[in-house]
Amino acid sequence: MSKTVITSLGNELTSQFDKRFGRAEWFCVFDSETKGSSFIKNDFADSNQGAGTKAAELMVELKADKIISGDFGPKAKELLEKLNIQMVVIQDSTSIQNIVERISI
């Protein structure tokens, strides 16, 4: 029973993985229990400052345990560490579907 957030460029499972965290276009929330996924738009993607912090706060609201992204900003990292949310950094250019399959094995 854990929720994983994957940063995504679009709102479908076929969308590409987004390598940014605070400025990711969408967040894919994957529930390992129900195997269901939902997409949430990142409203802070275009803000000038504090996108990482706001995105990290959003993660708490979503009750995420694990976040998969390409890079975490220093502020987001500090916050997520305090909140005991696991951060995973991968550099693969792949689709959300592919990542979901990898973690749900």
Binding site: E81, Q86, M87, Q91, I103
Partner: peptide, 19 residues
């Protein structure tokens, strides 16, 4: 699998979250 990750204190097992 070359993934980089953190292990929060609340997590017990020390395994790669991806593979």
């Amino acid at each position: 699998c070359q993934a980089r990750f953190t292990i929060p204190k609340t997590l017990k097992q020390n395994i790669c979250p991806m593979c």
